Simulated assay, not measured.
Amino acid sequence: MAEISVAERDGVGADGSTRPTEDHVAVLGNAVVVLDGATAPRPDLPSGGWYASLLVHSLSRALTAEPQADLAVLLAESIADVARREGLEPGRSPSSTVAIARWTDDTVDGLVLADSPIVAFGPSGADPLTDDRLVSLRESGQLRTGADVRAKRNAPDGFWVAEAEPKAAAEAVRRSWPRSEVDALLLATDGVAIGVDEYGLFDWPEVLAISRERGPDAVLDAVRTAEKQDPDGERWPRAKRHDDQLLVLVDFGVAPG
């Protein structure tokens, strides 16, 4: 039986004002779903957090009803379900990242769409499952404006997210591990992963150690403390002073023999 710990914290909007978190999580019997709603591309659209809240519930129902089904198929069906019920249209809708981890006694399956990583740990160390397309586009200067983001979102030469286009699910990054080779999983939104990828506060094995020893909230504290020491983004340029944070530890302990 896996022990699951969750830590989450609100960030601030791009204007620096407080607002409810747009990260969402579902903990099921043999799966965890993490979503990070993206800032809407237009002010007249619903928020990414609103969309992520609907999608996480649809995914939870699908995973419960069909616990052995292909994860990409379930994601595509859930994207279509939300789009149909809410009248959402591709290119004119809010969006969300997706990270799904599911396990049995034999296998651990992971699916990642956009920048919410899953990291598996075992005898060989940390094995991150990441979708780097969004980060690569940012670093290469191809996402400088809102128009750039709209043009590259769910496009063959761009990046893929959950929105109103079910075919995005087929573009997710996926991996399966033998259950005997996985001792623990971490699932994170980018408000936590930034502490590893950009701030260099710790690596993923250190995040696991902190989460096991002091709880995942201690990791969130470390990221937030670093950001408070760089309030104007001079050391680490970023769109928001504090992003929403969500970190889940799935600790299997001793793997089945």
Rank of each mutant, 00 (worst) to 15 (best):
K228A: 15
E66A: 13
G87E: 01
P90D: 06
D230L: 05
E163T: 00
R224L: 06
S180D: 12
A239I: 08
R175S: 13
A162H: 11
D131C: 03
L208M: 03
A120I: 10
E163Q: 03
A193M: 05
E171M: 15
E8D: 12
D127S: 15
E171G: 05
A62P: 11
I194N: 10
L55K: 09
P67G: 13
D232E: 14
K167W: 09
D203I: 03
G48M: 08
V254R: 14
S78G: 08
V192T: 12
D127P: 00
A209V: 02
R224G: 05
T145S: 15
S176A: 14
L137H: 13
P156I: 07
A62G: 03
G253C: 08
G146Y: 01
L75M: 11
S140W: 09
A209Y: 04
L186A: 09
D132R: 15
P117A: 06
R212W: 09
V98D: 12
V207D: 10
P41H: 02
P41N: 01
R224D: 14
D132W: 08
L111E: 10
E234Y: 09
N154F: 02
V25M: 07
L71V: 08
G48N: 04
A193Y: 04
E213M: 11
D197I: 10
L187E: 03
L71P: 09
A52T: 01
E213V: 07
F252V: 11
D221G: 00
Q229A: 15
W204P: 13
D131Q: 09
A168E: 08
S47R: 07
E3C: 09
V149P: 00
E163P: 00
G91S: 11
R19I: 00
G125T: 01
L74N: 08
Q68I: 02
R150P: 00
D15N: 04
P46W: 02
T97G: 09
I210K: 06
V33M: 07
S58C: 01
R42W: 01
A31D: 09
K228I: 05
D81F: 07
D232Q: 13
V12W: 01
S176F: 07
A239T: 08
L55H: 10
L111H: 05
L74R: 09
A218C: 06
G37E: 02
E181T: 13
S78I: 04
D70R: 06
D70Q: 10
R42Q: 06
L88V: 01
R19D: 00
T21L: 03
R235W: 08
D131W: 01
A184C: 05
G257C: 10
R212T: 07
A151T: 02
D221V: 04
E206P: 03
S60K: 14
D131T: 05
A38M: 13
R85F: 06
R214E: 13
G29D: 15
V98H: 12
V32S: 10
V207A: 13
T189I: 04
A7M: 05
D132T: 14
L186V: 12
D157G: 11
R92G: 00
E89A: 07
R179F: 04
V223F: 08
A169Q: 10
I210L: 15
V98Y: 12
R61I: 03
A52P: 00
E181W: 04
A114L: 06
I210E: 09
V98R: 11
L201A: 11
I194C: 15
A62I: 00
D244P: 00
N30H: 14
V250G: 08
A147R: 14
